[in-house]
């Protein structure tokens, strides 16, 4: 019996603007440690909305969310920030990086925020991650000087810095060409296989989804198969 990393219990979500629409209806599922899960579904079915709730950034929902067997629902903003910092790695479609900082500094930021390790160790790990992702040459560059594919790899490195329980990604390849998409997928695959990293990836890319171990299909705010 494997360890449960994330558990959603009867999650409901509706928007009230301009009229009340239920976007998520009774979402329940679990993710085990080391699982590589993709979430697919038609545009507008609520994938992103679900991911924001699972990543603790959106707290306006009904139901319960547990990460690492800790109840997230009802926690304070500050405690949720700590959970995001320590247990969740997030990769966006638009590879956000802080433009004021170099690649290396960007990757180190969540580690410095967590402050569980000395600075040298964080830097060492950041360099290692860059090497694993094959972009160690870019370490000293400014974030603005990178290509889209490079940025996405830096974002992945950043999400890994604190050795999170789970990595969540919202269409991480949505903005990349075929070659870069493959690179990103391979990285995820490697993380899942080699490091037993749990991943939850929302994607439109059917090819990408097909290669993952488990696919959650959503339709109109419900999970239709998992």
């Amino acid at each position: 019996m494997s360890e449960i990393i994330l558990e959603a219990r009867h999650i409901y979500k509706q928007f009230n603007d301009p009229v009340t629409i239920a976007v998520l209806k009774d979402i329940s599922f679990t993710i085990n440690k080391g699982e590589f899960v993709s979430v697919v579904g038609k545009s507008g079915c609520g994938k992103s909305t679900l991911l924001y709730i699972l990543s603790t950034m959106d707290t306006a929902y009904q139901g319960e969310l547990l990460i690492d067997n800790e109840k997230m629902t009802g926690l304070k903003e500050k405690e949720l920030a700590r959970v995001r910092n320590e247990k969740i790695g997030f990769v966006f479609q638009f590879h956000y990086l802080l433009n004021e900082f170099s690649v290396l500094e960007n990757i180190m930021l969540p580690g410095r925020k967590l402050a569980k390790k000395p600075l040298e160790e964080i830097e060492h790990r950041a360099m290692e991650l860059l090497k694993i992702l094959g972009i160690d040459k870019l370490a000293a560059k400014k974030a603005t000087q990178l290509s889209g594919g490079e940025k996405q790899r830096v974002a992945i490195a950043r999400s890994l810095i604190n050795e999170p329980q789970i990595i969540m990604a919202d269409e991480p390849t949505g903005n990349l060409d075929r070659k870069n998409s493959e690179i990103v997928f391979d990285i995820f695959q490697k993380l899942a296989n080699d490091l037993n990293q749990s991943l939850l990836v929302v994607t439109h890319d059917t090819e990408f989804a097909a290669k993952t171990k488990r696919i959650i299909v959503m339709e109109d705010g419900r999970i239709v198969s998992q």
């Binding site: 990543s55 950034m57 903003e77 500050k78 920030a81 700590r82 959970v83 995001r84 910092n85 320590e86 997030f90 966006f92 956000y96 990086l97 802080l98 433009n99 004021e100 930021l109 969540p110 925020k113 967590l114 950043r158």
Partner: peptide, 16 residues
């Protein structure tokens, strides 16, 4: 705004 969003997403609290 983007930088603030990233900081928050990666674990910085509103207070930070």
């Amino acid at each position: 705004m983007d930088s603030i969003a990233i900081l928050k997403a990666t674990g910085f609290s509103g207070r930070d």
